[in-house]
């Protein structure tokens, strides 16, 4: 399997406080990975780095064969290859579900054509397809500010899929959901990604869900990588250490 992303010795400071300390990891193409850890562990920062939005970090990062720079955003093509599902969904309220999803395709269009809403046939086809997959077809014409929370989230997922990314990053996609809906949403994201062979990284603070939906779980605490192993091999001791800091001095266990 080829490599989707590779980070080597990445360090980032936020207000003189280390947000990421010497993180090294490799994401394989097509796998589903969970960043697990308490809030403030650096999960969101790491996702922002993979999305090319983080500035002022040290180390090396290469995502989908594009080397990232610590001072500039990645080029347009690279940005459209990486899809991001924001925690607060980040929809444009006054636009329809359809246009919000179409917005995911902007990176793949000619700027001038897109300004006059003249989208290509293929763009319309892709948007219709992902609306179908996310169960939003009937809501296509509804304005985003008239949607329920769940519908907004599905629109955000649809926008990300419309981008036809090779890598999907989801920041705490289920942190505000009840267990039943959390399963539905994670199932939707990972299912759609598997169908298309897309690599997925999602962050979460819920161990069971992470283990169930991810092939691999990476434990983060205080900006440090605590463990990195296949979901089935995450032990109760790992989880306990991740959240309570017990078993100090235990060695970093990396199995891959």
């Amino acid at each position: 399997m080829s490599v989707a992303a590779a980070l080597c010795d990445v360090t980032h400071q936020f207000d003189e406080h280390p947000a990421l300390s010497n993180i090294s990891l490799t994401l394989k193409e097509g796998e589903t990975v969970a960043f697990l850890g308490p809030s403030g562990a650096g999960k969101s920062t790491l996702l922002a780095l993979l999305d090319g939005r983080l500035r002022n970090w040290r180390g090396t990062a290469e995502v989908l064969e594009t080397p990232y720079s610590a001072t500039a955003r990645p080029p347009r093509d690279a940005r459209s290859e990486v899809g991001f599902i924001f925690q607060e969904f980040a929809l444009v309220d006054r636009l329809s579900v359809y246009q919000n999803v179409m917005n995911g395709r902007l990176g793949r269009m000619r700027t001038w054509q897109s300004l006059w809403s003249s989208f290509g046939e293929r763009d319309h086809l892709v948007v219709s397809g992902v609306l179908e997959d996310t169960g939003l077809t009937d809501l296509a014409a509804r304005r985003a500010d008239k949607l329920s929370g769940g519908q907004r989230q599905r629109t955000a997922i649809a926008r990300c899929l419309a981008q036809e990314p090779k890598l999907i990053l989801a920041d705490e996609p289920v942190s505000n959901l009840d267990p039943a809906n959390a399963e539905k949403i994670l199932g939707l994201i990972t299912g759609a990604a598997r169908k298309r062979g897309i690599t997925v990284v999602f962050s979460s603070h819920q161990p069971e869900l992470s283990q169930r939906f991810a092939d691999r779980v990476i434990g983060l605490r205080d900006g440090k990588l605590l463990f990195d192993c296949p979901s089935a091999q995450v032990s109760a001791a790992d989880i306990s250490e991740l959240y309570h800091g017990t078993a100090p001095g235990a060695e970093l266990r990396v199995v891959s």
Partner: peptide, 21 residues
């Protein structure tokens, strides 16, 4: 700024961000 950031992340140019975000 959040929706605009999302468009930028998806590869939208500045003009596209202005028009659609």
């Amino acid at each position: 700024p959040e929706p605009v950031k999302a468009l930028e992340s998806a590869g939208a140019t500045r003009l596209q961000q202005l028009r659609w975000g």
